[in-house]
């Protein structure tokens, strides 16, 4: 695309990535979560594709598929952590340590170090959605830009 689009994309891309990371990280406190933040970051990948052409994303195709597998495996492993009780039992909640702080009942300002396995699952699913939607976007771009019919 033209130099205007490329310049604006260069300015806008870090902001969009940071916002996607924020939405994923605060999934247990504010509206949002893994799926929504992953969709935001995947739209940033679509912006890269539009602005810089499909050749700029071609070398990341294997990385994206590896990230998708990593996200899926991390999600299942996080579900299996609670297998002494039930599948998907939240064993990390309220016991201290990583994300183990308990919340006071009722409305509160929101504390990041709470909710047990939920933030970790948010990151796993976010990684999976970023990789999945990103590879769909990259595949469409590569297939369309090859030649004309």
């Amino acid at each position: 695309m033209s130099v205007v689009v490329r310049t604006i994309a260069r300015i806008l891309l870090p902001i969009v990535f940071a916002f996607g990371g924020y939405v994923i990280m605060h999934g247990h406190l504010t509206p949002g979560g893994g799926f929504q933040g992953g969709a935001v970051v995947a739209s940033a990948l679509a912006l890269v594709l539009v602005a810089f052409g499909e050749a700029s994303l071609k070398k990341y195709k294997d990385l994206l598929s590896a990230l998708e597998s990593l996200g899926g495996v991390a999600f299942v492993v996080l579900g299996l952590i609670g297998i002494p009780f039930t599948f998907f039992a939240n064993v990390l909640a309220g016991v201290g340590g990583l994300f183990g702080q308990s919340v006071p009942p009722g409305p509160n300002p929101g504390y990041l170090n709470t909710a047990g396995t939920l933030p970790l699952m948010n990151w796993a699913v976010g990684l999976k959605v970023i990789a999945g939607l990103g590879s769909v976007v990259v595949l469409f771009g590569l297939f369309g830009g090859e030649d004309d019919r």
Binding site: L29, P31, F35, A39, G106, P107, N108, G110, V129
Partner: peptide, 28 residues
């Protein structure tokens, strides 16, 4: 969502929203 929620107000049902989230991703 309890983050800065208005006190003493009923909340809308969370389960349809959660399943709609699932439905949106599958539709995508």
């Amino acid at each position: 969502i309890y983050t800065y929620a208005p006190p003493g107000v009923r909340m809308v049902l969370p389960t349809p929203q959660a399943l709609t989230l699932t439905s949106i991703v599958i539709g995508l």
